[in-house]
Design a protein around this nucleic acid. Structure first.
Lengths: 137, 137
DNA sequence: TTTGATAACTTGCATTTTGCAAGTTGATAG
DNA sequence: CTATCAACTTGCAAAATGCAAGTTATCAAA
């Protein structure tokens, strides 16, 4: 991620990853694609958290530059683009899965969604394998 | 995390977690404690990435409020406090481990640290168990 | 063909977060 | 007592995010 605040550059693996998706929206965009199957700008715009249009556009560009996702023209609709996670992006499945497990354990809110975390709890390896294969969890 | 930009509130587990550590520094503070064994403000201040003093103070307070870490007076040094990850914080070990593995696979920088990710690659469960038990990986 | 709708952004400005660097306060050591 | 240290705090600047209106290219219908 090309932030003005210089990248961490510490060489630590956690820092390296956070340089790519350690902002407010990066991992949520990736989640929308991996877990919900979002593929277009409009679908991502209609995500659960209400990302701003300028931030979404910027994030998509940065994640594309980081090799996390790819952007191609939609052959069936000249106005639309298709965004897809690359293998590099899909390989973040274990991170998403374990974050969901952690949250399921500690989030006491009554309105918490449990679909994804329930699936992970039931079959963590299966969920990860499917996301890595480009399928829904 | 009490950010003015309203919390996501979507109910999604990933969003719940990012509300707590989805800022620029949260997960790095947690890493410093889990992976390096940092326990004092000074040790955290001397982290690999150069966090600002005001941000560190603020983050420690927020993470304490979120139940990720605890703060207690150092009985041997009246000027110092000891910060320790709670079980809730230590339960983020799988997330840290997965991030490290992912980065080891995709970070091509020659100066990348490989200690933690090598340990995870060799024995992911062992690393997670040790961190969860409050030990170093 | 024209008109209206739509997808994907872009733009201008406001608010919030992070960064820099100096400063303060309480505790310790000599 | 003075000097040093640990843990912040403070004031301001820079960067990131949010809001809401706007623009452009493409598609669909009349």
């Amino acid at each position: 991620m090309t932030r003005k605040h210089s990248k961490y550059e510490s060489g630590c693996p956690v820092a390296y990853a956070l340089d790519i998706f350690g902002d407010r929206w990066g991992l949520l965009v990736i989640r929308d694609m991996a877990v919900k199957g979002a593929r277009t700008y409009g679908e991502l715009q209609n995500g659960w958290e209400g990302i701003s249009t300028n931030i979404l556009a910027q994030r998509l560009k940065q994640l594309e530059e980081a090799g996390i996702l790819s952007k191609s023209k939609d052959p069936e609709n000249g106005r639309s683009y298709i965004y897809a996670l690359t293998q590099k992006g899909r390989d973040l499945a274990p991170v998403l899965a374990d974050i969901a497990l952690w949250s399921a354990k500690y989030n006491k809110a009554g309105h918490a969604m449990t679909g994804f975390s329930d699936k992970v709890r039931a079959d963590r390896d299966g969920v990860i394998t499917r996301i890595r294969a480009g399928k829904l969890p």
